[in-house]
């Protein structure tokens, strides 16, 4: 099963990026094999609608869950239509997050955890 984690860097040792729509990268990782791919987020500097565009991009990656610090309402709506679980409130190092996920330590959110434009103020 593949999951996508918003990341500040391109490796499993990177920190989780607290933003979803405007994160720097996604680490798309197979939780069985730990094989991963770092995906540049081209929407990080979008004028508007970063969450919508990023959610659509991630939906094309065939992941079952997205893990991030925060997820706003528009991104949440797109991800849930794509039947992708959203896990927000995630922080720390990517490989620990994957481990926690495998051990069932996270619960999927049933709603967005921040209002729109939240990630615009974070660097």
């Amino acid at each position: 099963m593949k999951i996508a984690i918003s990341s500040a860097g391109k490796t499993l040792d990177a920190q989780v990026d607290p933003r979803f729509g405007r994160c720097a990268y996604f680490i798309v990782v197979d939780t069985e094999t730990m094989q991963f791919e770092a995906v540049d987020n081209a929407n990080a500097a979008a004028g508007g609608g970063a969450g919508i565009a990023t959610a659509q991009m991630i939906a094309g990656k065939g992941v079952e869950a997205v893990l991030s610090g925060n997820c706003g309402p528009n991104a949440y709506e797109v991800l849930s239509k794509a039947d992708i679980k959203v896990i927000s409130g995630v922080s720390g190092v990517i490989k620990d997050v994957v481990e926690n996920y495998r051990n069932g330590k996270y619960e999927a959110s049933n709603k967005p955890n921040v209002a729109g434009h939240f990630g615009q103020g974070l660097k």
Partner: peptide
């Protein structure tokens, strides 16, 4: 429609078209 929208106001997911009128 989603590709040509310069303002990310439309997303096409599976068999759904999502329109975000505010955008």
């Amino acid at each position: 429609c989603a590709r040509v929208c310069a303002f990310n106001a439309i997303a096409v997911i599976n068999e759904h078209v999502l329109v975000f009128p505010q955008m």
